[in-house]
């Protein structure tokens, strides 16, 4: 239903419109720049909300994975294999289109996107977090146990903080990947950066300028995030 705008974006039509070649004219999109820039907030909030929910759920899954309770372990492993074994775009389409059909709730694109991305990133980050937990020296666990600390408290106060510190760079990389993948929500019509770019493109019949502009914004966001993460990591290393 919502894919039609993207359909208009294909090289065939570019050719028919006679706009081949690289004579870029950015002045044509200047009036649309504020409209495109508003997509930054959408893309960022989308990424942050999905990442936070994803990490929280991923943490729960990682604890299932190291648990002695077999059904929990099976569930988490199966869950992960499903989300890693199917394309993200298929997951998104399923949640966006199947939810209204199954529940009668016309799920907004943004919500469907957050749910999909959170569920998906949880599957990936649960593996990372599991690795981080297992990498914490087992002496830490024993020290907590000999104090008589309960398992949940030990996890929360002793193990997870150290696990997260170890895997912070990996989690940041996953967030950056999520930021880029978030452009997939444009396919169901959420007004993110890419979607705004394609709207401007199809309204003005110019493609390279708005899309290049959008690509540049993604690039700047990703690079800034990477830079902040590196600074942060260096700071943390020094504090060791």
């Amino acid at each position: 239903m919502m894919f039609h705008r993207l359909d208009s974006f294909n090289l065939n039509q570019l050719y028919l419109l006679g706009q081949t070649g690289l004579n870029l004219d950015f002045s044509k999109i200047v009036p649309s720049i504020p409209f495109i820039l508003q997509g930054i907030a959408v893309t960022l909030s989308f990424t942050i909300v999905s990442a936070l929910i994803g990490f929280a759920w991923g943490t729960v899954l990682s604890i299932f994975k190291i648990s002695n309770i077999k059904p929990l372990k099976w569930f988490a492993d199966f869950y992960t294999s499903i989300f890693r074994g199917t394309p993200l775009l298929v997951q998104l389409s399923l949640i966006y289109f199947a939810t209204p059909q199954l529940t009668g709730y016309a799920i907004p694109a943004f919500q469907a996107g957050v749910i999909t991305f959170a569920l998906n990133s949880a599957a990936y980050s649960s593996e990372t977090i599991r690795g981080g937990i297992l990498a914490v020296d087992k002496g830490q666990r024993e020290a907590a146990m000999t104090l008589g600390v309960t398992y949940p408290l030990m996890m929360w106060d002793i193990i997870l903080p150290q696990a997260f510190k170890n895997i912070l760079p990996a989690l940041v990389n996953e967030s950056i990947a999520l930021l880029k993948d978030s452009s997939l929500v444009s396919t169901v019509g959420a007004l993110d950066l890419l979607r705004r770019g394609t709207i401007v493109a199809s309204e003005k019949f110019i493609y390279f300028e708005p899309l290049l502009f959008v690509a540049l914004i993604y690039y700047v966001m990703v690079m800034s995030l990477t830079w902040v993460a590196q600074r942060f990591e260096r700071r943390m290393r020094k504090s060791d």
Partner: peptide, 12 residues
């Protein structure tokens, strides 16, 4: 109480 060879203090 237990004291370990490698201390096992909580580093954070």
């Amino acid at each position: 109480g237990m004291v370990f060879q490698h201390f096992n203090l909580f580093p954070h």
